[in-house]
């Protein structure tokens, strides 16, 4: 699970221009902390689908699943199985 989390964090650092000095906790909100907006979320979903060869059903695109490192990691683990 840790490598998935690190992979998502690397993606965010490379693509969201997030401040690398801010400490982002696993359950911190990506949207409320100014890291992602709705377009960014769709781009991140595309990246995840391609990288992990999964399809994220659109009804799973919710804050619970997609607004934190932990939520996204859990979702990928669930869908990869």
């Amino acid at each position: 699970m840790e490598h998935i989390k690190n992979d998502i964090l690397d993606y965010l650092k490379d693509n969201s221009f997030m401040d690398t000095n801010i400490g982002l906790n696993d359950n911190d909100s990506l949207t409320q902390n100014g890291i992602m907006d709705s377009i960014g979320l769709l781009e991140l979903m595309d990246y995840i689908c391609e990288k992990y060869d999964i399809e994220v059903p659109e009804d799973m695109l919710t804050p619970e699943n997609f607004d934190s490192l932990q939520g996204i990691t859990n979702l990928i683990v669930k869908l990869v199985k």
Binding site: T31, Q32, D37, S38, I39, L42, E43, D46, E58, D59, L61, T62, P63
Partner: peptide, 23 residues
């Protein structure tokens, strides 16, 4: 554009509305 075809579901529409409300 991030993607040429994007399906919108109620969940995501509500979420993106809330994000814009906050902005």
């Amino acid at each position: 554009s991030p993607n040429p075809i994007i399906s919108l579901q109620a969940n995501f529409i509500r979420w993106s509305r809330n994000i814009f409300e906050k902005q």
